[in-house]
Write a protein that binds this DNA or RNA. Sequence first.
DNA 1: AATGTGACGGACC
DNA 2: TGGTCCGCCACAT
Length: 127
Amino acid sequence: MDIRQETPFTRMAKNAIRAIPRGRVATYGQIAALAGRERAARGVAWVLHSSSDAAGLPWHRVINVRGAISLGRGRGFEEQKKRLAAEGVVVGRGGRVDLKRYQWEPKDGAASSPAVRKFLAGLLKEK
DNA sequence: AATGTGACGGACC
DNA sequence: TGGTCCGCCACAT
């Protein structure tokens, strides 16, 4: 299935995903924030599962805020785990990843808007 | 036009 | 710790 319309949100979301460095991960909410819609995590999930060109994105670097792989077993879970492991990301039982250790923290211009910094600061607190 | 559906997230019991 | 509810986005019915 393809995204019919390339809206600013879907475009920015994809750009944000492409910006995630190897060996690091980002959460759906984080990508949403980078795309200008802090609370549109669902929209990000939608962008991924409905894009045929997701194959051209480092989609495996996107996980949920609990640090876990959201895909179910037999529905991509194994593939995502494999891809992350191949980049050196330790994925434990249940597809758990240590966000403290692997979460991407953009420090450059575009990604450092006040809203984004605030969002990331909140994530660093605990969990 | 209205409702339903996700690879979500956070607030509130 | 764990459910439920609701907002978010774009698309499907």
